[in-house]
Design a protein around this nucleic acid. Structure first.
Lengths: 152, 152
DNA sequence: CTAAATGCAAAACGTTTGCATATAG
DNA sequence: CTATATGCAAACGTTTTGCATTTAG
């Protein structure tokens, strides 16, 4: 599915929920489409949307992201550093999408794997807890930084 | 190991790092010892330390928590709600300590299990990433809320 | 005596809100 | 015409910082 079709799907999804695909919201989505591995902060997105719409306000970016998150179009990530990051939600990916975060350079990479299916069943059985989502992050040193450390 | 021994261990650990176990830091630790399943916010801890030390300042609580986190005495949790929560780090528990977060009532329960040892080995092999820590949280509905939902 | 730690108030930070204005069904 | 959405500035809550003062090796 190409980008224009993605946008068209999102437009329909918004309209189903009495919301419009305004130029501002479209700009936000385009930024996320063009940076789908970047895990952008609201500020990042704000600065990039200004290329399309110099008049856009930061509050509008936040409000757009809030709406799009509620409609499951974007996914909000939290690395515990005091700000949220955003990425497009892709169908089927949600449960198999985890992050590797380098504690030295901050680089974030991803891997997709159904690591937790069995674990969740076990927890449901043992803990009387009905799991609907999860968040799994690994911290450590990426290849680049490990090579740097060997030298230094 | 009883509480006084825990404190003595922490005192030694602090002194090894040119830091003192001040009354303020001790108060913070005592609050955490007495609430080890509470996942307290900095504000919670601040209010509780005031029982021991009415003159303590919020900034001191933050600075204490920052230091204790750096020394691995306390562990900082982030549920993405805009504030951090803190708990004592217990030896051997770190890697086997995960959280179940109820999306309805906000209750946080824990379970301890070495779920990720094999997974980490696999990632190290496949992704060229050296893992030093991880964070695994499950979201869903706790027993209480599920029973409430059946009725409602 | 000196370095570390504190309390207070102010600042900083990311985020949210109030409100008048603009946009579009 | 009326709902929805916007930009701006002000407000918000959490966390950090500057600085004069206190504490303890």
């Amino acid at each position: 599915m190409d980008n224009e079709n993605v946008l068209e799907e999102i437009r329909k999804h918004l309209e189903k929920n009495e919301s419009r695909l305004t130029p501002q919201r479209e700009a936000v989505i385009r930024v996320l489409i063009n940076n789908d591995t970047g895990h952008l902060t609201a500020e990042d997105i704000f600065l990039q949307t200004k290329r399309y719409l110099p008049e856009i306000g930061l509050a509008t970016v936040y409000r757009s992201l809030e709406l799009l998150e509620k409609l499951n179009v974007v996914y909000r990530l939290d690395y515990g550093d005091g700000q949220s990051r955003y990425e497009l939600t892709r169908a089927n990916e949600e449960h198999y999408h985890h992050h590797l975060i380098c504690v030295q350079c901050g680089a974030i990479s991803e891997f997709n794997d159904d690591l937790l299916g069995d674990i969740e069943k076990q927890i449901a059985a043992e803990s009387d807890f009905h799991i609907t989502d999860h968040c799994l992050r690994f911290f450590g040193y990426c290849k680049n930084c490990r090579e740097g450390r060997k030298k230094g």
